[in-house]
Design a protein around this nucleic acid. Structure first.
Length: 105
DNA sequence: GCATTGACTCGAC
DNA sequence: GGTCGAGCCAATG
């Protein structure tokens, strides 16, 4: 099981697909919400690195969750503008990530 | 078992 | 490129 690398983000559909749940993006969101923010597999769940297909944070711009996620992403050098992330630069590409992971090992 | 709801996605405007 | 509406699937009541 690999997690989304530092400084990268992924959309719900992508996660769902990787999780073997194609078309169940909403379930991913629900799962993330239900999952403990910490203590899963002895690590914090990088829920803040998960955004929707439009590259936007799926929370109301005035909600606490939104600001929290935005802050966390920015702390990871991910540019967040108007609640949006530049997917072309920060979207996680599983193939490449997996390749790097293999090479690293 | 049916109706509602939701951290979504895609196509159309 | 941003917004709107319809579609999808599971979980919940």
């Amino acid at each position: 099981m690999q997690a989304i690398p530092y400084g990268k983000v992924a959309c719900y559909g992508q996660i769902a697909d990787l999780a073997g749940l194609p078309g169940r993006a909403r379930l991913v969101g629900k799962a993330l919400g239900a999952a403990p923010k910490q203590g899963w597999r002895d690590q914090a769940v990088p829920w803040h690195r998960v955004i929707n297909a439009q590259g936007k944070i799926s929370f109301a711009a005035n909600s606490e969750h939104f600001q929290q996620q935005k802050k966390l992403l920015q702390d990871e050098q991910v540019v967040v503008i108007a609640g949006k992330v530049k997917l072309s630069d920060f979207q996680w590409q599983p193939d490449l990530a997996e390749l790097l992971f293999v090479l690293q090992e």
